[in-house]
Amino acid sequence: MLLELKKVKKYFPLPQELFQKEREYVRAVDNVDLTINAGENLGLVGESGSGKTTLGRIILKLYPATEGAVFLEGKDITSLSNKEMRPLRKNIQMVFQDPYSSLDPRCTIRNVLNEAFVLEGKVVFEERIKRMKGVLRAVGLSVSSLDKYPHEFSGGERQRIAIARALIMNPKLLILDEAVSSLDVLIQEQVIDLLKELQDKYDLTYLFITHNLRVVRKLCQKIAVMYKGKIVELAGTEEVFSNPIHPYTKKLLAAALDYKANYQEDEFEIK
C-alpha cells in the first residue's frame, strides 16, 4: 500500500459574524478514506468545488488536515513537522493545473530543476546536469531548453517541464491536479501518452485529479468520485463506466460522454 487516507477532514473556517455563536465551516474534504496501491492509478473525479484539489494538497501536506491521518508507505505523515516531512517530500510530487502559473517566470528551466537538489544537499555538478538532461529527454524536450525562460515555451511544453520537475525527485506517487485540463485536445493526447510511457520507465503511481472522464478511462485502473467533500463511489474504471451506482456518478457520466443514464430527474438533484 503506497498511500492510505483515514477519515481525512479539511474544514475551512468562514469569517465569524458578530454575535454568532458557532463558527461556520466550509467542509472541503469530509471524512475521506482512500487507499492507493503501488502501480495502480487512481482517478479522482468530481465537479469543481468538490474538494478534490484540496484533497491532493492535503496529501502533499501543503495544507494541514483538520482531522484524520495520511499514511505514506505505512508511516503517518500528518503529525510530522515541516522539517521531518522534508526528506519524505520527494516521494510525492505534484503537477499543477495551470502550466502558466506553475513555473516561476523569473527562473530558467535550469533553476527550476535545480531546486530539487536543495533537498538532497550535496549533489555534484556533473550528476546534477546528467539528471536534468535525463528528465528533459524523458519528457521529450531538447536539452537546450535548460537555459530558457518559461515564457519561451508553449502550454504543452510547459506542462512537460512541470512533469520533469516532479520526475527529477524520483517520486513514487505523482499527483496530477487537472494536469491536462488546460491543454488543447491533441496536446492532451500527447501528454497522456507521455504519462503512460513514464509510468513504466520511472515506476510511478498516479493520482489523477480531474473532471475529465475521458482522460481517466485511458490512464486509471480505479475511479473515485467525489461530491461535496465526500467520496461517493469508488470502483474499477470499467465498472464505474458500465454500472454507475451513485446518482451523482450517473449524472457526471451523462454530462461527460452523452452517456444514456436511466435515472429520474427528481431522484437526485444537484443543489
Binding site: 494538497r57 522534508r86 517530500r89 510525492i92 506553475s102 516561476d104 533537498l119
Partner: peptide, 26 residues
C-alpha cells in the same frame, strides 16, 4: 498562493528560500 510557490514547497524547499527566491523577486 501561486502554483510555483506550492510546487517549491512540495519539493521541500525551505520557507526562507521560497520567500527570497520565489516571492520577493516578483
Amino acid at each position: 498562493t501561486r502554483e510555483y510557490v506550492l510546487a517549491a514547497k512540495a519539493m521541500g524547499v525551505s520557507d526562507i528560500r521560497i520567500i527570497v527566491h520565489h516571492i520577493l523577486p516578483h
